[in-house]
Design a protein around this nucleic acid. Structure first.
Length: 272
DNA sequence: ACCCAGGGTAACT
DNA sequence: AGTTACCATGGG
């Protein structure tokens, strides 16, 4: 069935290609197709919302959560806009939403993201899914932890993940054996959950923050990649302003999209 | 050819 | 506790 969601603050182009998810494709004509975990979706941009195309009715609650439909982004943008730079970021990235993604997929994806660029991250994840994911029509689901846990670095060679291959295997193994219980992290505080994630080889402060923000919706966390470090150095040496409240992580995503597409805003001296 | 990328680890002071 | 070389790969 087709399922329309009325929402005036929902831009798919911004949401799907701002570096938080890596498995979406622009089909043209306002239509996008992608996969989250083992679910496929076709979705169309409307003037006043989005339409899930041919969606299985029982998956609607999942996608509702995935796209964070329950959050009023217009209200967030209004609050953020009390700050001058954030106001510009909100105008530029208007309609962006922070997704609620599957924990294991998010964990592996952001392990792959380290010291890497978005185009190449997408390529590696695509090859990982083709090689080890369950077929999903003409596409492939994200690989399950037990499948990845049974692999060697040699098995992962065709994925061309480089030095990150061993990190992928450590994460998959810890999840598969139950040494790390991803479902349990929902019940923990951000700080407690972070300590759990940091036990994985190849997961440091930034990757942990990304997983907790993009999968567990710990919106107070601000992943500090090279671009956010530049924004902080240039505009917020004392940290993000008070108006971001408990949603600093969402404000961070607006800033990330804004600055990466307007690189001239950062002065040369802040490139470290 | 060179530089960089949604960084982390291990080996140093 | 705070630096720094090194890690694989390929896009710009």
């Amino acid at each position: 069935m087709d399922f329309f969601i009325k929402n005036s603050n929902f831009n798919l182009q911004k949401t799907l290609f701002c570096g938080q998810a890596f498995r979406w494709r622009d089909e043209g004509g306002g239509i996008y197709s992608g996969i989250s975990g083992a679910r496929r979706l076709k979705i169309r941009q409307e003037a006043d919302g989005v339409t899930f195309l041919g969606v299985n009715e029982r998956d609607i609650p999942y996608w509702h959560g995935y796209f964070d439909v329950g959050t009023d982004y217009s209200e967030l943008e209004a609050r953020f806009s009390e700050d001058e730079t954030l106001k510009k970021a909100c105008e530029y990235a208007h309609g962006l939403r922070v997704l609620r993604q599957e924990p294991f997929e998010t964990l592996i994806s952001f392990i792959i993201s380290q010291n890497n660029n978005i185009a190449r991250i997408s390529g590696i994840i695509g090859r990982l899914c083709e090689a080890f994911g369950e077929p999903l029509g003409s596409e492939y689901a994200f690989p399950r932890a037990n499948v990845l846990a049974g692999l060697s670095v040699e098995d992962l060679a065709p994925v061309r993940a480089g030095f990150r291959a061993k990190y992928i295997l450590d994460a998959a193994t810890k999840v598969h054996t139950g040494e790390l219980e991803l479902e349990r992290l929902y019940e923990l505080s951000a700080e407690e959950a972070k300590q759990e994630l940091l036990r994985i080889k190849g997961v440091g402060d930034k990757v942990a923050d990304c997983v907790l923000l993009f999968a567990y919706r710990k919106t107070e966390l601000v992943p500090k990649d090279v671009w956010i470090k530049r924004v902080l150095a240039e505009f917020y040496p004392g940290g993000l302003p008070k108006c971001v409240g408990e949603n600093a992580g969402i404000a961070q995503q607006y800033l990330f999209d804004y600055i990466r597409n307007n690189k001239d805003i950062i002065k040369q001296e802040d490139f470290v």
